[in-house]
Amino acid sequence: MTLTLQFLGSGHNQADELGHSAAVLLHNDVPDLVIDYGYTVHHAFQRYFPAHVVPAIFITHCHLDHIGGLEALFSSRIAHELQGNDRQRPKLFVPAPLIPTLHRIVASFPNALAEGGVNFWDFFQLIPVEQSFWHNQRRFQVFAVRHHAPDSAFGLCLPGRFLYTGDTRPIPEVVSHYASQDEWIFHDVSLYGNPSHSGLADVLREYPEPLLARMVAYHLDSESSMQKVESEGLRVARSGQRFVLRDRRQAPAESAGEQVSKEQA
């Protein structure tokens, strides 16, 4: 069994050329779980995986660059049904505190389809989650991050494989706790911090070297910003890049840094 994480985009909300930050967990090259679904993500998924449908999504928070593509996915599922294809409702794993906000933003309009007759949630399997959830025999852990207000954003961890912060200020204590087995750490990094995001200087100041050695930055605004982050010794994720997720519990002596795939999908 081979698990990899491929980025579908690695930019912030105004970095359309980089794609909105999102990643997909792949099992033997088959999509298993998408993390976030912003405006650019729907078309990126179709471009990289034209033979597959979206099986499941985890939502980190409700900013539109992380959920804005759900409407396009909703429309595509309607098209599948009209064409007589078997309905496959994507699982939508959503931290419970986010569900009211998510519903108001994407699902509360009385006619989700102009002709009426359907509800937005008819085409998704909404699964509220708290500290953890199971998906395809794997137990994922969910944790709150620092993003402007309490309980407004969450990260995801597959123990022994990876930790994905979503958008956050530095949370070294949380990352140290959940990524304690040499996992990859995929972390929100901007050149300059603000109340919702970690700046490069913040990350370099707050995280110890052993965590920085496993860290991959995303959520930047341009290729030049990526190069600036790389010049400070951090890896960055680019759209299409895959990272091999070896089970670190079975290979504790190896460096996670050796496991990056050079493949560009």
Rank of each mutant, 00 (worst) to 15 (best):
Q141P: 00
L126S: 01
A144C: 11
L73A: 01
T101G: 09
I99V: 11
Q83G: 04
T101R: 15
P100W: 08
P170N: 13
C157A: 13
R87F: 10
A79H: 09
C157F: 03
P95Q: 12
F124G: 06
K91H: 10
A107I: 03
G160V: 01
Q131S: 14
D86H: 06
P170Y: 12
S152H: 12
G160A: 00
G155H: 09
K91C: 03
L98C: 04
F74D: 02
F120C: 03
I105P: 06
F124R: 03
S108I: 08
K91D: 05
D122Y: 03
S76Y: 13
L92Y: 06
G166V: 02
F124D: 06
R169E: 10
Q141R: 11
H148S: 14
Q137N: 14
A149D: 15
I78R: 14
R77P: 01
P128L: 00
W121K: 04
T168D: 06
D167L: 01
P150F: 03
D151E: 15
K91N: 01
P128M: 05
N85E: 15
A112I: 08
E115A: 15
F109P: 01
N111I: 11
F109C: 05
T168F: 00
T101D: 12
D151C: 08
F143S: 04
P170T: 15
T165D: 06
F93G: 00
L126D: 03
F154M: 05
A79L: 13
Q141Y: 02
I171L: 12
H135R: 02
L92N: 05
L82A: 13
I78A: 02
P95K: 10
Q88G: 02
V94A: 07
A149S: 13
N111D: 10
N119Q: 14
V145G: 09
A153T: 02
P150H: 07
R77K: 10
R87A: 10
F154E: 03
A114G: 14
Y164H: 14
L92T: 08
T165M: 04
P159H: 05
I171T: 14
V145D: 08
A112H: 13
R146G: 09
A107W: 06
L92A: 05
E115P: 04
R139M: 11
F74V: 08
E81R: 12
H80E: 15
W121A: 04
S76R: 15
R146N: 13
L156Q: 07
E81I: 09
S108G: 02
P172N: 00
Q88W: 05
T168Q: 02
E130P: 02
V129F: 07
R146Y: 10
F109D: 06
P95I: 11
L98G: 05
S132H: 15
L98H: 10
W134V: 12
L82C: 08
E130V: 08
N119K: 13
F93A: 01
V145S: 04
P110F: 06
A153Q: 02
I105W: 07
Y164Q: 06
G166N: 02
G116L: 00
E81D: 09
P97H: 08
I78D: 01
R89G: 00
D167F: 00
S75F: 07
L156V: 07
A149L: 12
G155S: 06
S132N: 13
R89I: 01
F109N: 09
E81M: 09
